[in-house]
């Protein structure tokens, strides 16, 4: 049990430590560590967690950590996994804030961070592909995803609307 908790902590610590660029960019990391390497969640559970994360408040990484931790090791697991994912922030964000003026004026750091942009976009793209491979399984699904994508580019509807529409689409086509 202790070993399991330690593994949970380490996995989510890694996700927090390398999680640049926000929630969507962290999805690829979460999928790799939690679904692929440790196999604590199935890919469908992982996709359902993203769906739930879109419907509930709060950062997706916290949502995923809580559910994974609980499913693997109960309440202690949920607490440890969540602690793991916020721990790098605790160590890094505040010291970084103290150096805020250097952040502005150090071109090298600026360059390093701008080098992360392609990496972050690649991670989000890869997450779309991984989730897509498993979530889009037939023609109606593909057409629905394409319709959503089109609307996402043309309008500024709230993400919850797409989730609601997806649920209705699912109840019509997959029940």
């Amino acid at each position: 049990m202790l070993i399991l908790l330690w593994q949970l902590f380490v996995a989510y610590f890694k996700i927090g430590l390398f999680g640049f660029g926000g929630g969507y960019a962290m999805l690829a990391l979460i999928e790799y560590e939690i679904v692929k390497v440790n196999q604590w969640l199935s890919i469908t559970e992982f996709i359902d967690i993203i769906a739930v994360a879109e419907m509930t408040p709060g950062p997706v990484a916290i949502n995923a950590a809580t559910v994974t931790g609980y499913r693997v090791a109960g309440f202690a697991g949920a607490a440890i996994a969540t602690l793991g994912v916020i721990f790098p922030s605790l160590m890094i964000a505040i010291p970084a804030a103290k150096l805020v003026s250097h952040f502005y004026h150090n071109p090298r750091l600026h360059r390093t961070l701008s080098g992360l942009y392609p990496a972050v976009i690649a991670l989000i793209g890869a997450a779309a592909v991984v989730v897509g491979r498993n979530a889009v399984t037939d023609l109606p699904g593909a057409l629905f995803a394409a319709a959503c994508l089109l609307l996402l580019f043309l309008t500024r509807l709230h993400p919850l609307i797409y989730i609601g529409a997806g649920a209705i689409f699912g109840l019509i086509f997959y029940l």
Partner: peptide, 25 residues
């Protein structure tokens, strides 16, 4: 059934985020 339908919507949300963010940075 509902979650199976939400799946493609989630894919679209992630893909759109990649494209929109990519265009900006």
């Amino acid at each position: 059934a509902a979650f199976r339908g939400i799946g493609p919507a989630v894919v679209a949300l992630i893909a759109a985020a990649a494209v929109k963010l990519g265009k900006n940075v």
